[in-house]
Amino acid sequence: MNCEVCQLKELEVEHFEIREVLRCILHTIVFHRALGLVRPKDIDSELFEITYVQCGDAELEKKIEEKIDQFIGWVEKHPNKKSQICLSFYEVKNKQATWFSNKTERLYWEQWYINLNVAQQPKAHFAKSHHSKVVVDPGECALVERSVRRAALEAALREVLFQIIKFVNEKRDHIPPVPNVEGVSFPYEITIPSSSDSSFGMDVIKRMLQTGHPTMLS
């Protein structure tokens, strides 16, 4: 199977917006790839006038929050950089026999690259955001400017979500047979840039694949 890659449009975000943006995008993608029985959960974004959909899978939500935290941590260490998050779906080779063995091989059949350009902000405001809460920075910026910028981001985010929808509908033939009847059907993986700049990339992913456990089976 070939691996379809989708590069999502880059978003200019402020630090405190990262979490909500990533939530919207990641959950929307996963929802489209959760081909098992799903009870969709509507989530009204805390920051934007956007309602996105979750799969209603606590495990998945937890995982996504973890990854977002990691990513935010990375951003704080590497300010002013464009950053990328990759959500990939894969198949496990020989899954019947060696599903849990380290030697299983992951075949990636789809990868989503989320591109964020984090605007530099005084760290004080967002120092550490909590998992569940979006840190709203009181900011010294003019409110007007901020609202305009926010609206622009919201529109761009909406655009990205539509981009996901389009991609998902155009590329349908590469999807492997559904291994799981329940919820999030395909094993997936969320990759964030590691501490070393060069570490992020397909090579790394592949390396990780070799050794890593399947992140999510259910």
Binding site: F31, A34, L35, E49, I50, T51, Y52, F162, V168
Partner: peptide, 25 residues
């Protein structure tokens, strides 16, 4: 069937992204 699953998922998401959803809300 598989494709229509995806299509319906997209529909589900899209319905909530369109402006009319705000009115509904």
């Amino acid at each position: 069937y598989k494709k229509s699953i995806i299509l319906l998922r997209s529909l589900y998401v899209t319905v909530r992204l369109l402006p009319a959803y705000k009115l509904f809300r």
